[in-house]
């Protein structure tokens, strides 16, 4: 019974898995949350509507939240929401802002374009921050309908809602319209689990 080969084998086996792990940990400090989890978190958090924003801003007791302005510096200087902190979209990952972001929860994002706020939200969730929300609409509309004078009719405004009755404008082939969910399972051979023959 000689153990040298076993010891050597075990060490190599250990090294093969641990070294890439360490290497990955040292080099790739890209994301703190896996892609799958980000998608899941997005569906859970999402937006903060104008009414909720009103309540939040008018209630003096709530603390710790952060209103984040992700527009460029020069636009921020022209006018911004009261108490908003400016971290331009391109600087989201810079070290100097990390402390501010880390100590705040929830983080509430706005910008000129809703899609940019959402991009910032996805980015921050991927960096491991929790409770990241987006104020729908751009700065002007937030200013007009949520801050300066609250318009209840616009409370649930969101650019990502359907604004038109689409089928009225663009008539589709009735066959296509009736066909339920084409495409989803239409790829042959690309099922979720590919059967692997095996066993004995």
């Amino acid at each position: 019974m000689n153990n040298q080969q076993l010891n050597a084998g075990a060490l190599i086996f250990f090294g093969v898995f641990i070294l890439p792990l360490v290497f990955n940990w040292l080099t790739c400090e890209c994301y703190k949350t896996s892609n799958r989890q980000v998608v899941q978190k997005i569906s859970e958090t999402g937006y903060i509507n104008y009414e909720e924003l009103q309540t939040l801003l008018n209630n003096n007791e709530t603390k710790g939240f952060l209103i984040l302005d992700v527009r460029p510096h020069h636009i921020y200087k022209e006018g911004h929401l009261h108490g908003a902190v400016n971290v331009p979209f391109t600087e989201l990952r810079e070290k100097q802002h990390r402390k501010t972001l880390k100590t705040s929860n929830p983080i509430i994002i706005y910008s000129d374009e809703q899609k940019l706020s959402v991009a910032a939200q996805v980015m921050l969730l991927g960096q491991g921050y929790d409770g990241v929300f987006v104020i729908p609409g751009g700065y002007e509309s937030i200013r007009a309908f949520a801050i300066d004078n609250f318009v209840p009719a616009r409370a649930f405004y969101n650019e990502d809602k359907a604004m038109f009755d689409y089928p009225r404008f663009m008539k589709l082939d009735p066959v296509q319209a009736e066909r339920k969910a084409p495409g989803i399972f239409a790829i042959p051979g690309a099922e979720d689990i590919t059967p692997v023959p095996g066993g004995c």
Partner: peptide, 24 residues
């Protein structure tokens, strides 16, 4: 199901990482 652009396929964000779309 109500309306989509001609020829579009359906894939909500949660589905994108599913294996069946990887090959696509």
């Amino acid at each position: 199901e109500r309306f989509t652009l001609p020829g579009a396929i359906h894939m909500p964000p949660g589905d994108i990482l599913a294996r069946r779309w990887k090959a696509f």
